[in-house]
C-alpha cells in the first residue's frame, strides 16, 4: 500500500472490514458515494488518520488477511477516534445507511449537522451487502423471478466463503 490515494485506502479498509473484495465493492458502484459521505461528516485530519492507520496495517506485499485483520483491530478498532468510523463504514456497505456517531465521539471530535441516521440513497439501498450476504435480495428490488422462492437457498452446498479460489496462473494478458 505505497499508494497515498485516500480512495484506495478507503477501499482496502472497506474490503478488510466487510469481507468482500475490492472488486465486489466496486461492482456496487457506490464506493464514491460512501467515501463522500464519510468525508462530509468527519474532518479531513481524522479521515487522514484513518487512512494512515489503514496503510500501516496493509504494509508488506501480499500479507495474509488474518494478519491485516489483527493489525486493523489494533490500529483502528482499539482507537477511540477511529473505531466508530470503521463500524460506520461496515454499516454503510451492508445497510446502505449512515448511523449517527456515538455521543462521546461527537463531543470530542465535532458533530456535523448531517451526522444523523439516514439511508444514503435509493441506489445504495438496492446494493446493500447484507442482502447478498444472507443469500437473498434487497426487499423491493433485484427480484428473483416467479417461483424462485421455492428453489433451495443459493448456498446450501457451497457458500462463497468456503469456495476455493482458482489458482493464480500467469497468462499472457490479451491485448
Amino acid at each position: 500500500m505505497a499508494d497515498s490515494n485516500p480512495m484506495e485506502a478507503f477501499l482496502s479498509l472497506s474490503a478488510l472490514l466487510t469481507g468482500y473484495t475490492k472488486t465486489d465493492l466496486l461492482a456496487t458502484g457506490l464506493a464514491g458515494q460512501y467515501y463522500d459521505k464519510l468525508s462530509s461528516i468527519v474532518d479531513e485530519d481524522i479521515c487522514g488518520a484513518l487512512w494512515t492507520a489503514t496503510r500501516e496495517a496493509m504494509k508488506g506485499l501480499g500479507i495474509r488477511p488474518k494478519v491485516a485483520e489483527r493489525r486493523i483491530r489494533k490500529l483502528v478498532l482499539s482507537n477511540a477516534m477511529l473505531a466508530p468510523l470503521a463500524i460506520n463504514i461496515i454499516a454503510m456497505w451492508y445497510l446502505s445507511s449512515w448511523s449517527q456517531l456515538p455521543q462521546a465521539w461527537r463531543s470530542l471530535y465535532g458533530a456535523k449537522a448531517n451526522d444523523v441516521d439516514h439511508v444514503i440513497s435509493a441506489e445504495a439501498y438496492q446494493e446493500g451487502l447484507v442482502w447478498q450476504a444472507i443469500g437473498a435480495h434487497p426487499q423491493g428490488a433485484k427480484q428473483q423471478g416467479y417461483g424462485a422462492w421455492g428453489l433451495p437457498p443459493p448456498w446450501k452446498l457451497s457458500p462463497p466463503w468456503k469456495r476455493k479460489k482458482p489458482r493464480l496462473k500467469r497468462r499472457r494478458r490479451a491485448a
Binding site: L26, A27, T28, K142, Q143, G145, Y146, G147, A148
Partner: peptide, 22 residues
C-alpha cells in the same frame, strides 16, 4: 422455465455489476 426466469434476473444483476466495475 421457472428456474430459467430466475436465471435471467440473476444474469442481469451479474451483468450490471460487471458494468459498474472499472
Amino acid at each position: 422455465l421457472i428456474a430459467a426466469v430466475a436465471g435471467m434476473y440473476d444474469l442481469k444483476y451479474k451483468a450490471v455489476a460487471l458494468m459498474k466495475t472499472p
